[in-house]
Amino acid sequence: MLERHIITLRTDDAGREDAAATRERLKAGFPPGAVRRMTQLGMLMSTILNDLAPAPDDAIVYASQYAEGRTLETYLESFPTASPTGFQTSIHPGAVQQGMIRRAQPAGDFFPMAGRDYLVGQSLLTALLAPAARVVLCGGEERGTWLATIDGASERAFAYGMILAQSVADDDARPLGRIALEPGDEAVSPLLSGEWFDLVHARKNFSGVLSPGWRATIEWQ
């Protein structure tokens, strides 16, 4: 069985909030003027990562079904004079890089992921296979507009991040929960990123086969 303890959890359920509202809500956490060039998911992820304060040796696994959906829209709208900022931030994993670059925080392992039905299960597997002592498992979506109508962006915005540790040091607070993966041959039950966020946000226990061959268990204390 692959297993890690959940040490820290941060979530932000921005829902139907648009980018301007997110910017207004979160701007106090950033230097003046910094948020002007940040994307919605960039602001959400940066706030989460600021709270989690990843260490240089931590691995980062970042999962997003649509990646930088709203940012893709604005970049596409910038043609024929393509926006250099829009180009940079529209490329997966621009949202996490906005936060980490602002923190000037290097990282070793950084696995940005995308997908749909099995993305959650595969991101858990990627996190639990990382050899680092601690893994930052994070993800989210930004709320799209016209791309959402063709299933190219999310209808809602949210972000989460958690620190997963291999072991719990004596001086650590009691873990919030645990995530485990064990071989499982049952039929896979897809769990979309929004459904996964709702589970994590509400700290609901879960057990099910989320990707081929692996049963996932999430238990909260």
């Binding site: 992921m113 997908g115 039905d117």
Partner: peptide, 9 residues
């Protein structure tokens, strides 16, 4: 169906 997707430029 067992396809994992990574995208890091």
């Amino acid at each position: 169906p067992n396809i994992t997707i990574f995208s890091h430029a």
